[in-house]
Amino acid sequence: MNLGLLTQLTQAFGPSGYEDKVRALIQEHVAPWADELRTDPLGNLIAYHRGNGKGQKIVLAAHMDEIGVMVSHVDKEGYLRFTRIGGVYPLHCIGSRVRFADGTHGVIYLEHREDTSPSPKLTQLYIDVGATNKDDVPVSVGAPAVFVRPLVQQGERLISKALDDRIGCYILIELLQQVQDSPHDLYFLFSTQEEVGLRGARTAAFSINPDMAIAVDVTITGDTPKALPMAVTLGDGPAIKVQDSGMIAHPKVRQLLVDAARKAKVPYQLEVLRGGTTDAAAMQLTRAGIPSGALSIPCRYIHSPSEMVDSEDVANAIKLLAAALA
């Protein structure tokens, strides 16, 4: 596990629509291994591996963007109100720190409430950047920010903000180096704006027009106290998507991944996710339709600032995909 790379990836600033820093970082790591690189009108980074002319045209997609917040108002005392970029939950916010593109940090807290029983609403939260008045606030309305939380490795577990989906980006970066002999034309798509509606993958898939598309993203697990029933466990192997609330994986893509897992002798799980989807759902409906599937990394506490994955699942996902593309 290249912990240094994963640290850089998870800590990079990249809320949906503002992925520039993540893109620059990934670009640096894939450039030596890619035959072509380009950035498209939505900011997607596409790294191309040229096959031997006998293979298929395959997209592998991981999204660069993370959830975050955006300043909607600054009051005269210098407190900021905010809206969410992607699926941010108010309960996760309280006491969290956020960081703006210019490095400014803020603390999110909650207004005093007489009745503390209902779950707080986002409109009851504010960001405190330590300013004494409005003029003292270094960021303006419209400024995006991301949560602050370092990467920690503890045993096999990895804990950080933004593992959704920098872990997918990590896997694709490592994978590109391992598939240099692949006969297939491979398009490593580092997509933008997944968290606000699978936007980047939609347009990139249109321009690439592949024979098949595979998203690499995170999925929830059923192995925490009183979790919703879900037959995915942290550490039991990468999860091959059967279905989620946005798509049914193409049976041939699913089978390709299952066969690859057997070939590579890595454990795998089958994933049926009831809430949530991936870039694959958008790519599937591009143009005349693209057979699509996904390989998911089991992840606890998705969309909280402390997402947790297992490094063995990550290593096995890379092996599995390398076998699928050989």
């Binding site: 939505l42 809206t83 969410r84 303006s140 606000v196 939609r202």
Partner: peptide, 24 residues
């Protein structure tokens, strides 16, 4: 005025942006 819009704008801009290969 600046209009911060963290996701779907609810306007034609949302549909146009993802036409074909993507449109700034």
């Amino acid at each position: 005025h600046l209009d911060p819009t963290p996701g779907a704008s609810g306007t034609d801009a949302w549909g146009i942006q993802v036409a074909r290969e993507g449109i700034p």
